[in-house]
Computed example of a mutant assay.
Amino acid sequence: MAAPTSGWAITQANVGLRRLGLNCTSLPAYRGPSTVLAGTTISGRLISTGLDLSSGSITIERSCIRPTKAAPGMPIVGTTNYNSMRPAAGRVIIRDSEIDGTLLDARTAAQATGFIGVADLARNYIHRLGSGIGIMNAGSELDSVIEQNYVTGLVAEGDPAKDGTHSDAFTVRDFDVSKRADRTLVVRNNRFDCDSGSDTGALFIQTYSGRIGNVLVEGNLLEGGGYQLGLNGANYPYSNVRALNNRFSGTGWGPAYLQGGKGWTRWENNHLHGDGDVRAQGAAVNHP
């Protein structure tokens, strides 16, 4: 099956394993270490633990990551070395795979994020976790392309104002371009659905842990509660952030908000999701 060409064309059937005629239970078990060695490719395996990809130069493809347990607040898959807090030492690729929280108890799933770090993620299906994809502790060297992924079925537990959880389908918390002015983060043609009942939103950019620059958000379908697209200048500045040709469900608190900083460098052709032709253009969404 051909991969979708826009976020609003994505379904569960045309990303991840199902696009390839595979499923988690059909795959042979992965027997390697959970701290994966540099230079490794894992292909066509059922992985029942989380994965530490901080060694870098690693590819995960055509695989199902369905852990039976997870540490509270930790990612299922990550690229940070939590002993040194260093980011991935080389490029990481995760493609045509599934990250599945269905074997975790409700509290553990709600506290977990599918992926945190810096990598290229393409055509993955991520579901039944507290949050989906987080670019954080991304270092200052590696580019990142997040393309044609489907994050949905997020879950929450407890009171988010106290000790409860909150959900982001996709978030960026740092992406430093001070050492590489041509460094880019491209978030294109994804479907991000954040509807756990305790939602920050589908796509949330916040300078929580560092500067953020050179981010392109294009061709995505953003759905669910909270705000579908947020830009927040929290602790550091941001620059050159662009939102082009996205579609919004308009549910929750609305399609988009801005808090702090100069706002979007470019905001063009963003619309509520509408029925009809392949452009799916409803009412225009004004620059927040």
Rank of each mutant, 00 (worst) to 15 (best):
G114Y: 14
A88D: 07
R191I: 01
G233A: 14
Q12H: 04
N189C: 10
S84E: 03
R62Q: 15
M1I: 05
T35C: 03
A88H: 00
L20K: 03
A9G: 14
S26Q: 01
Q148D: 12
V187E: 04
I94N: 01
Y238E: 09
A243P: 03
P237F: 00
G130D: 11
G263C: 12
G201C: 02
A71R: 10
G132E: 11
A70Y: 11
G213T: 05
I42E: 03
L27E: 07
V241M: 10
S63K: 09
A3G: 05
V215A: 04
D193G: 05
I135P: 03
A38V: 00
C194A: 14
E147I: 13
I133W: 01
H273D: 12
T25I: 14
S239L: 04
G78I: 11
N235Y: 09
T184D: 04
M74H: 15
S55E: 06
T68P: 03
T207A: 08
C194P: 03
L103T: 13
L104R: 09
N190L: 04
G130P: 01
G219P: 01
A122W: 08
S131E: 09
G261T: 09
V145W: 03
G233I: 01
M136P: 01
E218H: 04
G230L: 03
S43F: 05
M85C: 00
Q148N: 04
D275Q: 14
G210R: 07
L258F: 02
L272K: 00
A161Y: 13
S84M: 03
L244E: 04
R173N: 13
V278H: 10
L121T: 03
L53S: 11
W8Q: 00
R95N: 08
G282R: 06
Y82S: 06
N269K: 05
E98Q: 15
D143W: 07
N23S: 13
G226V: 02
D277Q: 06
V145R: 10
S43E: 10
L222W: 04
A181C: 03
T59V: 15
T35G: 06
